[in-house]
């Protein structure tokens, strides 16, 4: 589906819509029509943050739909497309949410004569699934590629517990989020643990606490 054309149609259809952009995990921001609102780097950050918000809510609620963040002079609308892609719109608060929903739905449902009917992804290929080191019913349920008997589990549990001392109960959610990303981008090995420690430390606001956390985790750098 040509989402860039769809986005243009949506923006053109309602004067209250001030701009929008698309995001794909492997491609980043594209189809940017929000240059008057902020720059591409900030749009990318917005998209990545929304991805995290979505993944957290969708774990608990299996019927999540569109997202809306309301500011005084602007509403940021976000909807998930196929293959982990997102469509974002910026519009004036005077526009009713139901009108936006209807406009977006209509645009996405209408197929142009040039679009093929078979279900293909035009933008990017699907993300490759990470290869787990050992697939068992236990670690499949835990959505991790690390076998239950792996020596990594001890350090990972310690990491999670240590993190919770600084950021409270939300640590578990944040830890699982980053751990999944770490297993996808790097091999889940002791040698790559410092990278996980680094990104988790960034979640600690207080500089001294962050330093203490990193120092406490030094023992796991490179060790099994």
């Amino acid at each position: 589906m040509n989402y860039e054309a769809k986005l243009s149609d949506i923006i053109a259809s309602l004067p209250e819509i001030q701009g929008g952009f698309l995001f794909a995990p492997e491609r980043g921001v594209y189809g940017n029509q929000a240059t008057g609102i902020t720059n591409v780097d900030d749009l990318l950050q917005v998209a990545l943050k929304f991805s995290k918000i979505f993944s957290q809510f969708s774990v608990h609620f299996h019927d999540t739909g569109n997202f809306r963040v309301t500011f005084k002079d602007l509403v940021l609308f976000a909807t998930v497309l196929e293959q982990g892609q997102w469509l974002f719109l910026f519009y004036r608060p005077s526009l009713s949410p139901s009108m936006v929903n209807m406009t977006v739905q209509l645009a996405l449902n209408i197929q142009s004569d040039d679009e093929e009917e078979k279900d293909i992804l035009e933008i990017t290929p699907p993300l490759a699934e990470p290869t787990p080191t050992s697939i068992t019913p236990e670690n499949k349920a835990r959505n991790t590629g690390i076998a239950p008997e792996s020596k990594l589990n001890g350090p990972l549990n310690t990491l999670k517990n240590e993190l919770s001392k600084y950021i409270g109960p939300v640590a578990e959610l944040i830890f699982e989020d980053f751990r999944e990303e770490w297993e996808t981008k790097f091999s889940p090995t002791p040698e790559n643990l410092p990278e996980l420690i680094r990104v988790l430390a960034e979640e600690i606001d207080n500089a001294n606490d962050r330093k203490t956390f990193k120092k406490a985790m030094e023992t796991f750098s490179g060790k099994e």
């Binding site: 918000i53 999540t64 997202f67 809306r68 963040v69 309301t70």
Partner: peptide, 13 residues
């Protein structure tokens, strides 16, 4: 990311 705008609320439909 959005020019210092503070959000009023998030809505998850």
């Amino acid at each position: 990311n959005l020019g210092g705008r503070r959000y009023l609320h998030l809505c998850v439909e």
